[in-house]
């Protein structure tokens, strides 16, 4: 690990200023991923700006009836928050499906969004990786890729985004508030993470020096239900092989609102717009759900060892929609 400076920021403005003034600076939240990556030599920031004690640790109601989640709210606290548990149960479930109790106690909302892929080649500095070192190549395409992407990947990168929380936020149409040197802006979660394209080194659209300060959850109209389901190698403390977040409102047997997002399949939480198009206005039946899932997953191009993920995602989506329908 290279020597680095450490600064504890007292205000958002201070944090942004400190980071902007120091190329190669990184914000430090819970550190559950960043510090690991520093130990591995994957990240080598010259300055850590600790934002974990900024006054961003509250969950509050918005005027519109949604929720405002501060970026430093710990994953455990967010999962346990009564408003999250009752109104956004998919988010609570997603958080609790991630990592371990110890990690959730320290990991932050902002940091969870910004965690990096667990692709084994990305984490090993003795090997090529376009995400870590652009232009060096992607050994995962022909190598160990059972856990990696089946959709939306590129020649250059087949990494997946590891977050569970972000998948639920994508289906819930949450927004991310960013503060940067040029002011504040809001980005939808669905547009926050990128596809790899030919520059997989950029995971997100966050600009240099920008700090995640809040996540905004819009209100869900009455009668809307949601859930998160995850399949994994062991019962706890394992990343998703595939996961799904589903939000549904059914009236008189017809789907009035549907939002579906997949985790574990792509470089970002995969919002299933093609599926939603089929779901919207259609009868809430298994036939519809199958058609919707297949429409979305038709774009999947599994690698040699991960075709099972497509089938898994299809099952998760259909079952999640069926379960939500049964609840309405």
């Amino acid at each position: 690990m290279k020597p680095f400076a450490y600064l504890r920021a007292e205000t958002v403005a201070d944090a942004v200023r400190a980071c902007a003034a120091h190329p190669g600076a990184k914000f430090l939240g819970g550190g559950t991923n960043l510090v690991d990556l520093m130990k591995l030599g994957v990240e080598a920031p010259g300055l850590l700006v600790d934002v974990s004690r900024l006054p961003l640790d509250q969950v509050t109601d918005t005027a519109e009836g949604g929720l405002r989640v501060g970026a430093t709210v710990r994953n455990s606290d967010l999962a346990a928050h009564p408003a999250v548990r009752t109104r956004y149960s998919a988010l609570s479930q997603a958080l609790l499906a991630g990592a371990s109790g110890q990690l959730r106690n320290i990991a932050t909302t902002g940091g969870n969004l910004l965690q990096r892929t667990r692709c084994p080649y990305f984490q090993d500095t003795s090997k090529p990786c376009n995400k870590r070192e652009p232009g060096t190549g992607c050994p995962a395409r022909e190598g160990a890729h059972r856990d990696l992407a089946v959709i939306g990947y590129s020649e250059d990168c087949v990494a997946t985004h590891p977050s569970d929380m972000a998948v639920a936020l994508a289906a819930l149409d949450a927004d991310v508030v960013l503060h940067g040197p040029e002011g504040e802006r809001t980005v939808p979660v669905t547009g926050f993470h990128r596809l790899p394209g030919d520059n997989p080194d950029a995971d997100t659209v966050v600009r240099p020096g920008e700090l995640v300060t809040e996540v905004l959850l819009p209100p869900l109209p009455d009668g809307t239900v949601c859930l998160y389901r995850k399949a994994r190698d062991r019962a706890s403390y394992a990343f998703a092989l595939a996961s799904v977040a589903a939000v549904l409102r059914v009236r008189d047997g017809r789907i009035e609102h549907a939002a579906l997002a997949f985790g574990g399949l792509a470089h970002r939480p995969w919002r299933a717009r093609a599926a939603e198009e089929i779901l919207l206005g259609a009868p809430a039946t298994e036939a519809t759900f199958l058609r919707a899932a297949d429409a979305e997953l038709a774009a999947a191009r599994p690698l040699r060892d991960n075709a099972f993920k497509v089938r898994l995602a299809r099952h998760l989506a259909v079952d999640a929609l069926a379960e939500l329908t049964a609840r309405t």
């Binding site: 190598g143 019962a235 706890s236 990343f239």
Partner: peptide
């Protein structure tokens, strides 16, 4: 060996 940490080499956890 591809699995080189306890996040990727899956020893059973209590829940298993």
């Amino acid at each position: 060996f591809v699995e080189s940490d306890l996040a990727s080499y899956h020893v059973p956890v209590c829940a298993d």
